[in-house]
Design a binder for these strands. Sequence first.
DNA 1: AATGAATGAGATTTCATTCAT
DNA 2: CATGAATGAAATCTCATTCAT
Lengths: 218, 218, 218, 218
Amino acid sequence: MYQGKEMAGQTQNQGKSNERRQRRIERRRGEILTAAARVFARKSYANTTTREIADEADIAEGTLYNYFGGKREILLAIADESETLLEHVLLKGEGLQDREAVETLFEEGLNIFESRLPFIRTMFIEAWVDDDILRDFAIAQLGHFYRRLELYIIEHIDSGALRPVDPALCAQLALGMFGALVIPVLRGVAPLPAQDKRRELAKAVVDILFDGIRAREA
Amino acid sequence: MYQGKEMAGQTQNQGKSNERRQRRIERRRGEILTAAARVFARKSYANTTTREIADEADIAEGTLYNYFGGKREILLAIADESETLLEHVLLKGEGLQDREAVETLFEEGLNIFESRLPFIRTMFIEAWVDDDILRDFAIAQLGHFYRRLELYIIEHIDSGALRPVDPALCAQLALGMFGALVIPVLRGVAPLPAQDKRRELAKAVVDILFDGIRAREA
Amino acid sequence: MYQGKEMAGQTQNQGKSNERRQRRIERRRGEILTAAARVFARKSYANTTTREIADEADIAEGTLYNYFGGKREILLAIADESETLLEHVLLKGEGLQDREAVETLFEEGLNIFESRLPFIRTMFIEAWVDDDILRDFAIAQLGHFYRRLELYIIEHIDSGALRPVDPALCAQLALGMFGALVIPVLRGVAPLPAQDKRRELAKAVVDILFDGIRAREA
Amino acid sequence: MYQGKEMAGQTQNQGKSNERRQRRIERRRGEILTAAARVFARKSYANTTTREIADEADIAEGTLYNYFGGKREILLAIADESETLLEHVLLKGEGLQDREAVETLFEEGLNIFESRLPFIRTMFIEAWVDDDILRDFAIAQLGHFYRRLELYIIEHIDSGALRPVDPALCAQLALGMFGALVIPVLRGVAPLPAQDKRRELAKAVVDILFDGIRAREA
DNA sequence: AATGAATGAGATTTCATTCAT
DNA sequence: CATGAATGAAATCTCATTCAT
């Protein structure tokens, strides 16, 4: 990651102001990243000019280069930022003991998704084209999530709560179900379900995932 | 759509050679589109130069403009080409009478997907960024498919074969399941299941969709 | 001037058919020049494509190159064509004996101008930019005319019919008067005076030229 | 018209430096326009490349686009520049009371013409081909001049100083006389009369205009 | 640090000319 | 000869990056 030009010819005797300086730099970097993610989300990385990023961040174009090595590095920094994205989700569903935990996972997934929509949209679009982003975002994030799901399934098959389905396939399909909900939102062709409808939606999804759609004989 | 060079001021006495000319033009247009789709699939529309398209099609850059009005028109022509894409799938599953038909649908979906991978990948990537492509491809193609699924579900709920789930949600989730299988392939991070494994895979997916993953009490 | 590819490997024993061939070639050259002059007049040489010339002449682009060495040569050929343009005018006013002859000159100038408007417009536009055209057209044509006018003035000053004005200046001004009438027409911002108004107009102009605009004391 | 980079998000506390910046931008725009007019005057708009303009202005090609939206906009800006061209001439002849005023008009016309030759030549050439330029330049400028002349003639016919000639025709012819003097200069085939010969020339022209060329009986 | 004008490499597009049919 | 598809040089324009202020 680009470190700015810090420490260039500075005596180290000013810890205080130096800290403040560091904070200011970090703050500014964050502002730029947020601005960039907004623009990238609207127009995609390739269709965004550094000019537009600078305008959105309300700074001069040249200033970008004091904080980042170039346009691409801004993108990569965004990818880094989102690295801890799903930690929250996983924490909320910690334990994943039962059906309710899976519902919570879905619901929290929607919540976190909403709060970071521009970031996620940017990553999602670029991951199709950019191998670094694919690695940093899709594999790191989704892969983590996927492995957790798989683990959960294996455990509950062992415990007899779930049928002996293929855990890998099953985790993949469950992710696909979540994707079916959020991809239209990412693309802007569907609104995110309202906050108070999310639990209900999560229940309906988990219901289908757990019990299937076939009618049972009485 | 670009119509090629219009046939202005032609005596009509050469139907034959004129036909042949038309065929030659169509063939060449097709070659360019195939080449372009390959490159777009690799690098996305925005990251592809007309130079690269021309190289891939093994023609001079200028020649592109004898067949298409510009780079964007090539993209739109690809979108048009893929318009009848899913017709085949739907035909194969015609009737969709029972569980087996849904398996066939999944399987055929994978087959058609394989045969048109560069086209589909191109469309999929661009639909994120380009509203025309979104309309022409995603909504036209997936929407069609989606409505068919929904209809099928409604019918079978009525007939008592399926539980009274929300048909719209259910169709969406089923699409998501299919997406979970093909999206990694589209992105190139997973291989397409071998031809002779596809039926098996389709069965497993449909099994989960129909019967869920929960273990039943004896 | 470009001579085509004639006489290439031909025995000379077919005078007849050879003559016919020559006539056909000349005819076709003329058609192309007329067509080209029309397009040049509309869009100027630089803004006209060989495609447009070919379309206007209703032949293929490549065919142009059987008759002319290139685009520029077509322009030069047009310039040549118009070489004999003003001969007619001068003949009509032959002698230029008196005031009436000058009127005839003006009137005939308008007539010839009308009949060759695309040629003249083309030449006029290009002469501003192209030194060859300037030489072939403006200097050859206008210069000729100018010298005749000057000669006439000198003669009539000698004979006492005209005041002892500067003949060169006077010829130049008379040309300017004619220009004032036709330049707006050339540019398409004024219509050419109707045929039956031209004599009248010529009289009015010559009246001012000869008698000035100052009122005379009684 | 292109406004340069808009001043977005600027704290207003730097009126000074902002003004200086504005002036620098204006100066640079002017330099580019002058350079462009020189090249256009030599080669015409259509035959001039942005490369040549940049070279003449001694800047990089890309820099042009920091000041103008494109090549055409440079042309239009030149047209705007020359908008107030003839105001000066008209002011000098203000009143136009008598024959001497008309001489002044001619003389001043030559002076202003000399000082803005590249601009005028550019406009004159393009007006033949470009309707916007025709409107902005020829009609706005010459039209203005023409109407003033006409008015003058009408007034003096009323006052009895001039014969009852057709004022419109007469104004047109007078313009043509001026054109006869300057068009060869515009084209570069004749030098502009030396400063100290201009009054004399103007007198000679006005003499012919007012008194005609016919000898009077004693 | 912040600025934003300057840069130039590279992208898209046009079009006169060639040449195989 | 006629054709018109192919060509590629050259034109216009964009934009990430640099650097003097």
